Each structure stands twice: as structure tokens, then as C-alpha cells.
Computed example of a mutant assay.
Amino acid sequence: MEAGIVGLPNVGKSTLFNALTSSQGAQSANYPFCTIEPNEGIVSVPDGRLHEITQYIKPKKVIPAILKLVDIAGIVKGASEGQGLGNKFLSHIREVDAIIQVVRCFEDPDVIHVEGQVDPVADMETIETELMLSDIDTLENALPKAQRSARGGDKEAKLRVSVIETCMKHLAEDKPLRTLELGEPERKAISSYGLMTAKPILYIANVDENDLEGKCEHVQNVRVYADQRGTDVVPVCAKLEAEIAELDEEDRQEMLGSVGLSEPALHQVARAAYHTLGLQSYFTAGEQEVRAWTTPVGATAPEAAGVIHSDMQRGFIRAEVYTLDDLHAHGSEKDIRDAGKLRIEGKSYTVQDGDICHFRFSV
């Protein structure tokens, strides 16, 4: 699962990406399209539960969940018609699972705004409009082929035609597809199109160093816009976070304390992106390692086991499950077993966020 970082040029996308992935590349010039090919990076998802588990189980190593990020070049008005190499950039968005839009909420005369003034809601609307126009174009091109197949009696094609027409009507009402409720068969029918407004979205308000909590009018407007669409907003000062990311741990904690932060705002971004993707973590814990594994919310025990190895899913027998609360109450896995609190779950069990699991399998 991966998330693409998008936004207008010069809003701080690459600065945020570099801070998140601790990239130490050369400074980019202050002009549009300084990112051409998308950069990719891996970021750990901070999770305090890992540390809590290691208070009871002492492993040789601790491995957090990870998230793949893609830094996609700046999009401008007219991108859906090819402006600013727009078609190429939009194709990169089509390949990711979720969108992280960085929105400029700071004033700085030295940093050029592509539209001449800072207006984050207008920026959000510009991106949304370009993605909707591109989706409309994709569906219009796909519809004739689906109609031809449907006339030949193809049941899947008939469903695809119906879903395409429903999506086009929704987009014509100026509504992104993520606000359209579709069943699993309907989603599957159009999944190959990579429709961009169907992807979940997270907004990052890039704020000034004097407004780390995001209290300015720009951020408040962003929150109203996001609330109306059921999406999350995380305020971040990308410039400050980039400086913090370059420090060693001791200096990092000192700098965080000096600006009144308990943790880097990037930790909030990683967790929010994880949530936006519809992901959760379960854990395995032993003397070799304590590790967070990533599954979609709603995954069954065999599906969760398959994240570790496909053989474990194929030959799944049962899951042995306990929780961090059980560790707090009993102190060790052995004592949890002895107390009869270790749960035995079968193939239909839905793994919960925070479960600590052992999978039994045979192949």
C-alpha cells in the first residue's frame, strides 16, 4: 500500500517528503516542477505499543510497520488537459492507493505561489477539479468498449457499464467518487481504471513556524473544507520538520521541547496516512523480534497470516491471540496462557488493531 504526496508547485511537498523519509538530497530550486519523476521512500509508522510490548518481552530487534510514500510533481490548473506535463503527473497518482495533499497555509514573499496568492481552499479545489476532469475523461473513454462487450451478453460488462454511468453522473454533480457508495462488486468492476477521486485523501496544512498548532485563518478554512468531505487534516511546518529530521536523537528532543512539541509532527502524518489508507497493525512478539504487521481493517486471521508468508495463509490452522492489556494484567505470555486468557481463533476471526498473534499452520 502506498500514498502519493501531491499539491500545487512550491507548497512544500518535497520538503515534507524528504523530512518524512529522512532524505538528505540537495536543495531544489524555487520554481515549479522541480520534481519530475516521482521519488519513492519508506517511512516507519510510530507506534508506542511496540515499546510497551518490549517492557514484557525482550527481543533482539523491534520492527515497526512501514508505509511507502511517493513524491509526485506539482499539479497546476489545466493538468487534466496536459498543462505542466499534467497527464504524466496524473498517471503517477493513478497508481497509488491514497492521496496526501499538501496545502500551503503560510505567507512568504520569497516563495512563489503559482497562482500569485495564498488561498489553500482554492488550491484544494484546483487539485480536486483536475482529478475529477481526468476521471471523467477516463470513464468516457472506457464506456464505449464496455457497451460493446455488454451488447454481446457479457454480464460483467453490463455491470461495468452501469457503474461507469453512475460514476459519470456523480462526477457531473461536482462530487468526487470517494463520496459515492459502491458495493464490492461495483468497485471491482471499475478497479482497473485507477480512478483518482475514488482514492481516500488526507490534507496536510503546511504552516508557518509561529503557528504549529494550525490556528491561523488559512488552516481553519482547510479544516472546514475537509470536514465537509469527511477527511482529516494534520498541521505541519515542513520547514521545521526537515530541520528536526536532520538532528540526532538528543538534539531532536531538545529542539522539540523548545518549540513545545512532544513528538515530531511527522509522526502524526505517518499515523494519519496509515489510517487514511484503511490500515491497522497487529503484532508478533518473541525473543527474536517484536514486530508490527500491516493489514487492511477487516482482514481475517488467514489473511493477516498471509502478510507474513503466503504458506501461512494457505495452510492456516488457527490463531493464538492476546492483547497488550493481557500483558499488562499478567506480565508474560506464559502467564496469559496459564490464566486461560490466550484466545484460540479460527479462519473466520477478524483481526483487531493491536492484537498480538501466533499463527499455527501446516503445508
Score class of each variant (00 low, 15 high):
residue 317 I to L: 12
residue 157 A to H: 05
residue 262 S to M: 05
residue 38 P to I: 12
residue 86 G to E: 07
residue 354 G to F: 01
residue 83 Q to V: 14
residue 166 T to E: 10
residue 62 V to P: 10
residue 62 V to K: 11
residue 190 I to R: 01
residue 298 G to R: 10
residue 358 H to P: 10
residue 350 T to P: 00
residue 112 I to W: 10
residue 126 T to Q: 13
residue 12 G to R: 04
residue 346 G to L: 07
residue 141 N to Q: 06
residue 116 G to F: 02
residue 350 T to Y: 08
residue 7 G to Y: 06
residue 155 K to H: 08
residue 16 L to V: 01
residue 329 A to T: 12
residue 23 S to L: 12
residue 83 Q to G: 04
residue 78 G to W: 01
residue 315 G to Y: 04
residue 44 S to I: 01
residue 248 D to S: 13
residue 137 D to P: 01
residue 122 A to Y: 07
residue 39 N to Y: 14
residue 362 S to M: 11
residue 3 A to C: 12
residue 215 K to F: 07
residue 300 T to V: 02
residue 186 E to I: 02
residue 40 E to V: 15
residue 232 D to F: 06
residue 168 M to L: 15
residue 233 V to L: 00
residue 34 C to E: 12
residue 319 A to L: 07
residue 61 K to W: 00
residue 63 I to D: 00
residue 108 D to G: 04
residue 232 D to A: 15
residue 201 I to T: 11
residue 233 V to E: 07
residue 251 D to F: 02
residue 150 A to D: 03
residue 103 V to R: 06
residue 283 F to D: 07
residue 142 A to E: 12
residue 165 E to V: 08
residue 347 K to P: 04
residue 276 T to I: 11
residue 342 L to Q: 13
residue 45 V to F: 01
residue 132 M to W: 06
residue 327 L to E: 03
residue 104 R to K: 14
residue 291 R to P: 02
residue 5 I to C: 09
residue 209 E to A: 14
residue 9 P to H: 10
residue 322 Y to H: 07
residue 277 L to R: 14
residue 172 A to E: 08
residue 77 K to G: 07
residue 176 P to Y: 01
residue 191 S to T: 05
residue 300 T to W: 03
residue 340 G to C: 05
residue 347 K to Y: 12
residue 337 R to C: 12
residue 167 C to P: 03
residue 77 K to Q: 04
residue 87 N to F: 00
residue 152 G to M: 03
residue 293 W to S: 06
residue 318 R to Q: 11
residue 188 K to P: 00
residue 302 P to Q: 11
residue 300 T to K: 10
residue 215 K to S: 12
residue 152 G to K: 14
residue 76 V to G: 03
residue 325 D to F: 01
residue 273 A to F: 04
residue 12 G to W: 00
residue 186 E to N: 05
residue 140 E to I: 07
residue 175 K to C: 05
residue 346 G to I: 07
residue 224 V to H: 15
residue 135 D to E: 14
residue 68 K to A: 13
residue 168 M to S: 06
residue 249 E to P: 06
residue 336 I to Q: 01
residue 7 G to P: 02
residue 14 S to T: 14
residue 266 L to A: 10
residue 48 G to M: 00
residue 153 G to V: 09
residue 217 E to H: 12
residue 136 I to Y: 00
residue 230 G to E: 09
residue 361 F to Y: 12
residue 200 P to H: 10
residue 322 Y to Q: 02
residue 215 K to R: 14
residue 161 V to F: 09
residue 116 G to L: 08
residue 179 T to G: 00
residue 245 A to N: 09
residue 215 K to A: 11
residue 24 Q to K: 15
residue 13 K to Q: 09
residue 314 R to N: 04
residue 244 I to F: 06
residue 23 S to C: 12
residue 287 E to R: 06
residue 224 V to M: 13
residue 55 Q to P: 00
residue 269 V to N: 09
residue 7 G to T: 03
residue 321 V to A: 10
residue 151 R to W: 05
